[in-house]
């Protein structure tokens, strides 16, 4: 079990600084990669993530003392919100959002994996491609859970949907990916 960090550990300035740096070093790249799933521009992704860290340092250092997974939840949610705000401001269509009015059962093109392709050679590339092609809601849930390493309940809170929906979408994604692995004879 991970030990819980208490905010009183961070009272001194040095403690806050090292925690800040630690969190930055651990999560900067994953957060940028998560941002990249929305905004397909590396520089913009870095700006969005750095803005969030700057804001934490200047206005909201107490979040650094959050228990357990709190800081991950905070950061991944903030990245998601800021990416959506960015896309809206730029008047570009978000890659996906929960407001998309899509029929959950209609889209099965991602199941059509050409069997003649030698999938073993680039299995992980195919995996990435397939994740990209998941139905919007399913993809959103999976990316936040997987990249943010957030629990079902945390994903549900972040997206404003029920925990049950999160679980269904997550397992739907797992099932699709599992089929790919199987057809690739990976395991």
């Amino acid at each position: 079990m991970a030990t819980k960090r208490d905010i009183t550990d961070l009272i001194d300035e040095n403690g806050i600084q090292s925690k800040f740096k630690l969190v930055f070093e651990e999560l900067y790249a994953p957060l940028c990669q998560y941002a990249f799933t929305f905004v397909k521009d590396k520089d913009t992704c870095e700006d969005i993530v750095q803005d969030i860290f700057t804001r934490i340092w200047e206005k909201n250092r107490t979040v650094l003392g959050a228990y357990g997974n709190g800081i991950r939840y905070y950061l991944f949610t903030a990245v998601r919100n800021n990416c959506i705000t960015y896309l809206r401001r730029e008047k570009r269509t978000p890659v996906y959002t929960l407001t998309d009015n899509m029929n959950e059962n209609s889209s099965h093109q991602w199941m059509e994996i050409a069997p003649e392709t030698d999938l073993r050679t680039d299995y992980k590339a195919r995996l990435a491609e397939l994740i990209e092609q998941l139905p919007p809601k399913c993809k959103e849930v999976f990316l936040l859970a997987r990249m943010g390493q957030l629990s079902g309940q945390e994903v549900a809170t972040a997206l404003g949907i029920s925990a049950k929906t999160v679980e269904n979408q997550l397992w739907k994604a797992m099932k699709v990916l599992r089929l790919l692995a199987k057809s690739s004879n990976m395991y």
Binding site: C45, E46, K124, A125, L127, A128, I131, R146, M147
Partner: peptide, 10 residues
């Protein structure tokens, strides 16, 4: 899938 999503590099 975590590895597959860890891109591009930053």
């Amino acid at each position: 899938s975590g590895d597959a999503l860890a891109q591009p590099e930053f």
